Amino acid sequence: MKPSIALVLAMLACSAPPAAAASFQSCLAAIGSRAVAAGVSPAVFERSTSGLQPDMTIIDLMNKQPEFRTPIWDYMAGLVDAQRIADGRRMLAKWGAVLGNVQRRYGVDPAVVVAVWGVESNFGENQGSYPLVQSLATLSCYGGRRHAYFQGEFINALKIIQRRDVDPAHLMGSWAGAFGNTQFMPSTFLRSAVDGDGDGRRDIVDSVPDALASTANYLAKAGWVPGSRWGYEVRLPSGFRPGLAGRGRKRPLAAWAAMGVRRVDGSPLPADNARAAILLPAGASGPAFVVFRNFDAIYSYNAAESYALAIAHLSDRIRGGGPFATPWPTDDPGLSRAQRRELQALLTRRGYDVGPADGAIGAKTVLAVKDMQRRLGLAVTGHPGLKILTALRGG
């Protein structure tokens, strides 16, 4: 049956830029037809969208460009710091029985599951404050070239509500639609969420066992190899060609050993045929790593090598491992979250408006750092690193 003219016009309104869209409500009407066709009951759609208004601040966030690209050493310093390592060890102990069951069921290292939880929501403390239905509806209608993707996620969020897995009042998340202890998108939830506490629901928001089991299930589906490591730090031979590195350039471990690649302590690599890649996240002068299939599984959670390395390294530290042996190639190391809060507090004392001293580096902090660097005779980079913190401590 052909769609009505009104429905066609409503669907075109969804595809148009905000200035040309007939209205948010007409866009929702078009999505409603798709949602019902996908299995969402009209009653659930009506109940979830009645009186709904767009939150255009979300579009501002989507379009906002970062002031600078975060160097890998800053990224790692903020995610793998003493506080998160200690909290991770506590959570590993507190939820040991649950994690043991999860490992037996899915084969995934408990420390990796805990590391994902720590990075994604700081162990449940920061699950997001945006109402998921409103966020995804706004992005569905005003999300530009990605509006079709967000429409799919919006419909999936309605399916979650319909299945009564998560209390709709608790369905809060990031502005982009990720939610829960381990920040699943709705489509990821529908594919990978499982009931970890046996209550018949898959609630990654209010049930830690559900969130941990769901994360392990996701990693298992992504190809996690039970009993295998993600990788480890290595030492490269003199003259190693950086072009050989890259997550997609795998060779048997024995082949890397034949080239002279060794463990970072100088011991030889195992002479086996496990396929592995060399990773150089900061270039040839920084730490080098050999990574296996499990690194790829972590990478699939958030497609960035820096993210996967942070999760992998945090899991090692939670288990009692030490920091990387090779220093990052910088004379201005990154700051932990506690140090970032200290930096912001010191800038505030100097009269700068950087907002709350929460450790989140935003545009105000960067501008204040630049001005202080200028006043102190430092290179004006805006980099919130150890140099400016040390200078402010002494001032």
Rank of each mutant, 00 (worst) to 15 (best):
P18G: 11
P110T: 14
A16P: 02
A115H: 07
G248A: 14
A6S: 11
A308R: 12
T70M: 12
G107I: 06
W328L: 00
K370Q: 10
A213W: 01
W256Q: 06
S315G: 07
S306C: 02
T390V: 02
V44I: 13
D203Q: 07
V225K: 15
L190S: 07
V8F: 14
E153Y: 10
S228Y: 11
A271Y: 03
L61C: 03
P323L: 01
I361Q: 08
F292H: 10
F24N: 01
N156H: 15
F154W: 01
S135W: 09
L92N: 11
S336A: 09
M259K: 12
W175G: 04
N217F: 02
I311W: 04
L389H: 10
A157E: 02
D165N: 12
P186N: 08
L253R: 15
A211H: 09
T138N: 03
P209S: 13
T138K: 08
A258D: 10
A93M: 11
P268N: 12
V166L: 13
L158V: 04
G128P: 00
H147I: 02
S285G: 13
N63A: 14
Y149N: 05
V108I: 01
P242R: 15
D165K: 15
P252W: 13
S33E: 12
D87S: 13
R263H: 09
A29E: 11
V44E: 05
P242A: 15
L389M: 05
A43P: 01
I5H: 14
G39E: 04
D353M: 09
T138Y: 06
L12C: 05
R263P: 00
L392R: 10
L253C: 06
T365V: 10
A193D: 00
S129V: 10
S306T: 12
N294H: 10
P287G: 02
G260S: 02
A216L: 09
P281D: 04
P168W: 13
Q344A: 05
H170G: 14
V40N: 04
L28D: 05
V8W: 13
R191Y: 00
S187E: 02
V261G: 00
G32N: 10
D195E: 00
N63V: 01
A20Y: 10
L309P: 00
F24D: 00
G246Y: 11
F24V: 04
E67C: 03
D109V: 05
A38W: 06
Q344K: 08
G78E: 12
P66L: 08
M91S: 09
K387C: 04
Q65Y: 06
F295R: 09
D109R: 15
D195C: 02
F154K: 06
A304S: 12
Q103E: 15
P209N: 12
G196T: 08
G377Y: 11
M185D: 01
G377F: 09
L309T: 11
G51N: 08
Q103P: 04
R340L: 06
F68P: 00
H313E: 09
A282K: 10
D55G: 03
W256N: 02
G152N: 12
Q344C: 04
L12D: 04
A93L: 11
P384K: 15
